[in-house]
Design a protein around this nucleic acid. Structure first.
Length: 254
DNA sequence: TGGGGCGCAGCGCG
DNA sequence: GCGCGCTGCGCCCC
């Protein structure tokens, strides 16, 4: 028995094989699309999807990589990914500068630019391990991605606060694909109407656990209505690396 | 046996 | 989307 139990006030979606929504019954949009894809790479069947739905929230979850493959990818990411340092590793909130409580990096197609901390930047060019994960995600979702944001959480004290991803640079209606390696961490969604002092109604928090080798696809319009966060979990001692694949709009030439 | 104290999670705030 | 301060809660253990 764990000494400290999580206060459960929202909907929990715990990572279990026997989750009834995995195949058959309540199929999600990616699951439906993927089922209609041609089978690739000799797999007898596609991954087992769980569809996660709430008001304006539409996600699909699966464990995409088995342990051995996920371990290998995690190790490669630890060896190969080059994270931001200096000014790019800081953020200004309420006028005060802080080091972000995690490490970040971006990779993507050549010629792309994106805005980060008020600066226009180019992602680093793809490296083989990222291309391999990206292509596997494309294969099972039927979506293409030209950019990835990488977040590394060295332990349970590293975290990210509630936020929505900036949709201005995303291709309209495109999903965000989040692939996790390393420590399993809780992941929370909170409806925009149900947070802070401007809360106007109660909508249950949606809780997920993102396992080693897992893929969470956040479909439109999830990011429009829901904030997400990776809260502090002091008992987690191991690192986690998360890849969020996106399709961002090419820079407008003037 | 029970309650004080501790550590964690959650939330409001700037 | 940060840290701080405060509160509430559950468990440990004296």
């Amino acid at each position: 028995m764990e000494r400290f139990l999580m206060k459960r006030t929202g909907r929990d979606f715990v990572d279990k094989e026997e989750v009834p929504t995995a195949l058959g019954g309540d199929q999600g949009s990616v699951a439906k699309r993927a089922r209609n894809q041609p089978r690739v790479g000799g797999h007898p069947a596609g991954p087992r999807w769980r569809h996660i739905q709430a008001e304006g929230l539409d996600c699909d979850y699966t464990v995409l990589f088995g342990k051995a493959e996920a371990d290998k990818i995690f190790h490669e990411l630890e060896e190969e990914v080059e994270y931001f340092t200096g000014a790019l590793a800081k953020v200004q909130v309420f006028g005060k500068w802080h080091s972000v409580p995690r490490k970040q990096a971006t990779y993507g197609d050549s010629g792309l630019t994106y805005t980060f901390s008020g600066l226009t930047l180019s992602p680093r060019p793809w490296i083989p391990v990222l291309e391999r994960v990206r292509d596997r995600v494309s294969e099972v979702t039927g979506q293409t991605f030209n950019f990835v944001l990488i977040n590394r959480y060295k332990d349970g004290c590293d975290h990210i606060g509630e936020h929505r991803d900036d949709e201005r640079e995303l291709a309209p209606g495109s999903p965000i694909a989040s692939v996790s390696f390393g420590a399993c961490r809780d992941f929370l969604f909170r409806h925009k109407d149900s947070r802070g002092k401007n809360r106007c109604r109660e909508v249950e928090v949606v809780r997920l656990q993102l396992a080693h080798g897992s893929l969470l696809v956040m479909n439109h319009p999830t990011n429009t209505h829901w904030y997400h966060s990776l809260p502090v979990r002091r008992k987690v001692l191991a690192p986690r690396v998360n890849l969020t694949f996106r399709r961002i709009l090419p820079t407008t030439k003037k």
